[in-house]
Computed example of a mutant assay.
Amino acid sequence: MKILKAGADYSPDARSSIVAAVLLGIVANISFIIQPGLVGGFVEGLGLGEQQAGELAAAEMFGIAIATIVLSLASLKVNWRASFLFFSAVAIAGNLVSAYMTEFADLVLARLLSGLGHGGLISLSFSAVGLTSKTDRNIGIYLAVLLSYGAVGLLAMPSLMATIGLKGIFISFSLVVLIGIGLVGYLPDQAKNEEEVPEATEPLNIKLLVPALLGYLAYNISQGIVWAYLFLIGVSNGLEEQVVANALFVSQIFGVLGALIAIVVSARVVGRFAPLTIGILGGAVFIALLLLKVDYFIYLIAVCGFNLMWNKVLPFILAAISDFDLRGRVMPFALAIQMFGLAVGPYIASQIVGDGDYRAVELASIFFFVLGYILLIVPIMMRKKQQKLELKKAL
């Protein structure tokens, strides 16, 4: 088959390869990026409680995390295109099964299976972008396109729930994955080989890499804690479902703006410290607004600021982490950590959420924001200093 053929013609920086990776990113993230709407659908459409809805979101995210962890260990050895076909089949099966499950325990298993499939797709599409030479820019493009889909998806969720319901939504997910298979042949078939890496590449600095990855884990836990419940937080403050959906739609536009800022404002120009500090701690500040007496205006500012900071800083964090290893070995592992954090987050939130009270969820998110910043900023800045010294020696 053409899509399984080793692709010497498809370099990571080829335009066709980048476009395919970006479009497949939508296929891969099709449910996660509209997770607040799905969690709201679990409550409103299935009559589940807030804790069960959060556990369903966590089940899918744990499936995603497991798949990305497996691929982080195997990405240098497996054929990426064959893997994409396999995980596409798993994702299709998981979504179709989800459409017909009526018992909570069965639905948990179905969403776990779906997560396994989508996790593989996320890892492969994101890793393909991570191999490009202009990582900051291309991750920004990836996020901008993905968030554009997310904006439309969140806006349409109340209408979709009223017309086709969760069953129709899950079947639609399966159809999109099926269509996406046609793009697989434009992906690189594997990670970079040893001969493709500059001879001067330094070995991994584990003492700096480990705390950076732990910081990235904490940062994503903070995101996962609050992201799953953003829709319900709005509804709990007396806002109508469509009004909340509208606010989340606008927030996704701000997310696109954040990703575009990351495309335009290169870390080579502004450095790492300012974007990381503003992006991470700024996100904590916007979530803190939800601790106030929330009306529509405050909710809109909070969710828009949160999405802006999240998507502005994420390309800078990933580009900084990718600097630890030019072979591309760190990027799949970083993605696994990201997805594990986004799985742990909803689970933590589901265990501490009150009956219509989300204060503990918001406080936990803020705590992990700050912890992630502390763990990230020190090793990243030390690595940057180390690279400058290496450059001086080379000159």
Results as ranks from 00 to 15, higher is better:
Gly372Pro: 05
Tyr373Gln: 11
Ala334Lys: 06
Phe333Leu: 15
Ala343Cys: 10
Met381His: 09
Pro346Val: 08
Ile380Pro: 02
Gly341Arg: 00
Met382Glu: 07
Gly341Tyr: 00
Ala360Glu: 14
Val330Tyr: 02
Val353Ile: 12
Val330Leu: 06
Leu335His: 11
Ile380Ser: 03
Pro379Gly: 10
Ala336Leu: 09
Tyr373Gly: 06
Glu362His: 04
Phe369Pro: 04
Met382Cys: 04
Tyr373Glu: 09
Phe333Tyr: 12
Tyr347Asp: 09
Asp357Leu: 03
Pro379Thr: 06
Val378Pro: 00
Ile348Asn: 07
Phe369Cys: 14
Val330Pro: 04
Gly341Asn: 06
Gly341Phe: 01
Asp357Gly: 00
Phe367Val: 12
Ala343Tyr: 05
Pro379Phe: 09
Ile374Leu: 15
Leu335Thr: 15
Ile337Gln: 08
Ala364Phe: 13
Val344Arg: 01
Gly354Tyr: 00
Ala334Met: 14
Phe333Pro: 01
Ile377Leu: 10
Tyr347Glu: 11
Leu363Phe: 15
Ile380Trp: 01
Phe367Leu: 15
Ile380Glu: 01
Gln351Tyr: 00
Ile366His: 10
Gly372Leu: 07
Glu362Met: 09
Met339Gln: 14
Met381Asn: 11
Gly372Val: 06
Gly356Cys: 13
Gln338Leu: 15
Met381Glu: 14
Gln338Ser: 14
Pro332Gln: 09
Met381Thr: 08
Gln338Met: 15
Val344Ser: 08
Ile374Val: 15
Tyr373Leu: 10
Ile374Asn: 07
Ala334Phe: 06
Leu371Asn: 08
Gly354Ile: 00
Tyr358Pro: 01
Ala334Ser: 15
Leu363Cys: 13
Ile374Ser: 13
Ala334Arg: 06
Met339Cys: 04
Ile380Ala: 03
Gly356Arg: 12
Val370Gly: 05
Asp357Asn: 10
Gln351Glu: 07
Ile374Gly: 11
Ile377Gly: 04
Glu362Arg: 01
Val361Lys: 00
Val344Asn: 02
Val378Glu: 05
Phe369His: 15
Phe333Ser: 13
Phe368Thr: 05
Gly354Trp: 00
Glu362Lys: 03
Met339Leu: 15
Arg359Tyr: 02
Phe368Gly: 03
Gly345Cys: 07
Met339Phe: 14
Val378Asp: 04
Ser365Ala: 14
Tyr373His: 07
Gly341Leu: 04
Ile366Arg: 02
Gly356Met: 08
Met339Glu: 14
Tyr358Phe: 15
Gln338Asp: 13
Leu376Ile: 14
Met339Tyr: 12
Ala334Gln: 09
Val370Trp: 06
Ile380Leu: 13
Gly354Gln: 02
Arg359Lys: 13
Val361Gln: 01
Leu363Asp: 10
Ala343Gly: 15
Gln351Ala: 03
Val370Leu: 12
Leu376Trp: 10
Ala336Asn: 10
Tyr358Val: 03
Ala364Leu: 10
Met382Ser: 07
Glu362Pro: 00
Asp357Glu: 10
Ile366Cys: 11
Pro332His: 09
Ala360Asp: 14
